[in-house]
Nucleic acid binder design. Structure first.
Length: 270
DNA sequence: AAAGACACCTGGGAGC
DNA sequence: TGCTCCCAGGTGTCTT
C-alpha cells in the first residue's frame, strides 16, 4: 500500500534492523518482478554491510560499499523484518538474510515493484529524471509555476508526474486538490499564483500529516500480519464517491482522469 | 515536447 | 457456491 508516506514509514521501520548489519545471503524465489532481479545480486551482497537506508520519491535505497540496492514497492509491495525461521508465505519473493538472525522479506502479490542494483557513483536511469522531493524547499510555488508553464493537461496529472514532483500518488493528489479548492481537471496553465501557492502548501501538509500517521504502521512493523496503516485517517474525498462532503455536505463525485479514479467535491472544488 | 493509451500482475468484491 | 466482470495505492514505454 505504498504512497510516499508508507514508503517513508517502511524506511524508518527497517532502518534500525539494517544499518551496520551484514547480509549473509540473498534468496530469490521469484526473480520476475517488474524487471528481473539481477542474477548477480546475491554475489554482490554476500557478506556486505549495509551502511544506510535512504528514500528518493517512492524508491528505497539500501547503501553498501559497492553500490545501492534500489527497491520500489509498486502497488502492492511491502517489506518486513522477520525472524529467520519464519517460513515464507505466498508472494514472499525475496529474502535478505541477515547475520543478525533476521530477514528483510519482500512481499508483492502484483509484482509491479522492483529490486535493482545501482553501482556506486552511478545514478540509475529510474532515478535520473525525478523531480524534487515534495517536502523539500526545492518544491515551491516558483518552481511549480515554471514547470507547469503552458501545459494544458489536468493539474492532477501534473502533480502526479514524477518528473515535476515525486511521491504524490492518487490518494494524496485528490486530497491536496480538495484542500486547495482546485478542480482536478483544471488546465495546469490556467491556475493563478495564489492557487498554486496554496496547492504547494497543501501537498506538503497532507504528506507530512500522513507520514505522522504512518507511526502506527511503524509500531506494528515487525508483526507477522499485514499493516493496519494510517488508512483510517480522515480522508476528505478519496474513496468517498456518493458520500457527503465533510465541509459542505454536497455529494462527492468520482470521475476518471487519465484512467485513474479521481474524487472531488463539485462545491468546494469549482 | 507533451498527452494519452497501454502494459505489467494478482486478488478482492459486486453482481448474477 | 461459483462464475464473470470491474477495480485497485505505480510508472515506464510506445504512439500520436
Amino acid at each position: 500500500m505504498p504512497e510516499l508516506p508508507e514508503v517513508e514509514t517502511t524506511r524508518l521501520g527497517i532502518k534500525p534492523f539494517l544499518e551496520q548489519v551484514t547480509v549473509k545471503s540473498l534468496i530469490i524465489r521469484q526473480a520476475k518482478l517488474r524487471w528481473p532481479v539481477p542474477s548477480q545480486l546475491p554475489a554482490l551482497l554476500s557478506l556486505q554491510t549495509c551502511h544506510g537506508v535512504r528514500r528518493r520519491g517512492k524508491y528505497l535505497l539500501l547503501d553498501f560499499e559497492a553500490g545501492s540496492v534500489l527497491i520500489h514497492l509498486g502497488m502492492s509491495g511491502s517489506l518486513r523484518i522477520l525472524p529467520q525461521e519464519h517460513l515464507p508465505q505466498k508472494h514472499d519473493h525475496v529474502d535478505f538474510v541477515l547475520l543478525s538472525g533476521q530477514v528483510l522479506r519482500y512481499h508483492d502479490p502484483r509484482k509491479f515493484g522492483c529490486i535493482l542494483w545501482q553501482p556506486l557513483h552511478e545514478t540509475h536511469k529510474l532515478l535520473s529524471q525525478l523531480g524534487p522531493e515534495p517536502l523539500s524547499d526545492a518544491f515551491n510555488t516558483h518552481y511549480l509555476a515554471e514547470q507547469l508553464g503552458l501545459r494544458k493537461s489536468p493539474i492532477k496529472n501534473c502533480i502526479m508526474n514524477a518528473q515535476i514532483v515525486v511521491g504524490v500518488g492518487n490518494i494524496y493528489a485528490c486530497e491536496a486538490l480538495f484542500r486547495a479548492g482546485l478542480h482536478p481537471q483544471s488546465p495546469a496553465r490556467s491556475i493563478d499564483m495564489a492557487r498554486l501557492d496554496r496547492l504547494v502548501m497543501e501537498i506538503k501538509a497532507v504528506l507530512a500529516e500522513a507520514i505522522q500517521q504512518g507511526g502506527t504502521t511503524l509500531k506494528d512493523f515487525q508483526k507477522a500480519d499485514g499493516s493496519p496503516g494510517y488508512f483510517q485517517q480522515t480522508l476528505f474525498v478519496y474513496g468517498r464517491a456518493g458520500q457527503a462532503c465533510r465541509r459542505c455536505g454536497v455529494s462527492i463525485q468520482r470521475i476518471s482522469i487519465g484512467n485513474r479514479s479521481t474524487f472531488f467535491c463539485p462545491e468546494c472544488q469549482p
